[in-house]
Amino acid sequence: MIAVLQDLFFITLGTIKDVLPIASIIFGFQYLVIRRPINNLRSVLSGFVYVLIGLSLFLVGLEEALFPLGKLMAHQLTDPGFIRSGAHAGMDVLQWGDYYWVYIFAAAIGFSTTIAEPSLIAVAIKANQVSGGAIGVWGLRIAVAIGVAIGISLGTYRIVTGTPLQYYIITGYIFVLLQTYFAPRMIIGLAYDSGGVTTSTVTVPLVAALGIGLATTIPGRNPLLDGFGLIAFASLFPIITVMAYAQIGEWYSSRAQNSATRVSKGD
């Protein structure tokens, strides 16, 4: 219990250090440049305090409960002993297919951590307000989570096979480029944004443990070189799935209208 309180103290200090530069920029500009009092100052300040306490509790809870178990799990699942027990008998060298539990775990943990990612919740709420409900909070979150699941799963496959990172990323970019021409215009900015919001407090620590665990146990991989790159995968694929989400939505609504009136492309 004392250890928990200690953690809480240090993590709260860390969050304060995070909030301080942001708060000083905001209030500095508000009072020195804009020179107007803030509307509902009390409510805004208590909002900042809520964010601070909320984020600290959130991080302490993760450190206490989920990160140790999740990281341990990442190490156990990438352990050659475990992989070998599920591999075909009589094979000396592990094939990429023997790592199937790793790919499944990567997808599952990518999906579930993204659903709980606070910054994605924030963007989803905003997008829902701005679009007047056309973009669902859950629809967007699930679309992003599927993207992260695919991305991290493919990223672990890349580490197992040792293929160069840039081939995957550049192919992904080309796909994004093509999709941009066909997706509804209103989704494009949001889709590009969702690449950046997926990877923060919840996803990065678990995913990093998985990448480094894999790169350490597979012969011929360098943890410092091959352990990187999973975050890049997790930032790229949500762009594709969010555009796909809008495309599917558009397709459904245009089919529902039974081609009586063509749906305008959102502008």
Binding site: S46, G47, F48, V49, Y50, V51, L52, I53, G54, L55, S56, L57, F58, L59, V60, G61, A116, P118, I121, A122, I125
Partner: peptide, 8 residues
């Protein structure tokens, strides 16, 4: 923590 964060 998550509830407080969203409220904030």
């Amino acid at each position: 923590g998550l509830s407080l964060f969203v409220r904030g």
